[in-house]
Amino acid sequence: MEANPQSENWPLWEVFIRARQGLDHKHAGSLYAADAQMALENARDVYTRRNEGISIWVVESKNIHASSPAESGEFFDPANDKVYRHPSFYILPEELKNI
């Protein structure tokens, strides 16, 4: 959706919040803002009213590129074949600790 300067319609932004140190940014929702500064402030007002965040990312929705579920077969299956990447693949003696 192109932001038409003549239009009163603002672009849509996706909001990601990191709730606490050590966590990833998590998608919280979307909102409308005319520019990124406003988007950040709006995100703070809407999604962190109860101190739910210490870091906010905003991205115009049009800039999000997503994989399509129809592709998930080709896209993700190759990873499923490589079972040796998962810790549970390896059987180790019970007595072994810290590993």
Binding site: P5, Q6, E8, W10, A34, D35, Q37
Partner: peptide
């Protein structure tokens, strides 16, 4: 809303 859009477009924010 129009004003804010116009400003954003001007500044290529």
């Amino acid at each position: 809303r129009e004003a804010a859009s116009a400003y954003a477009a001007k500044k290529n924010y």
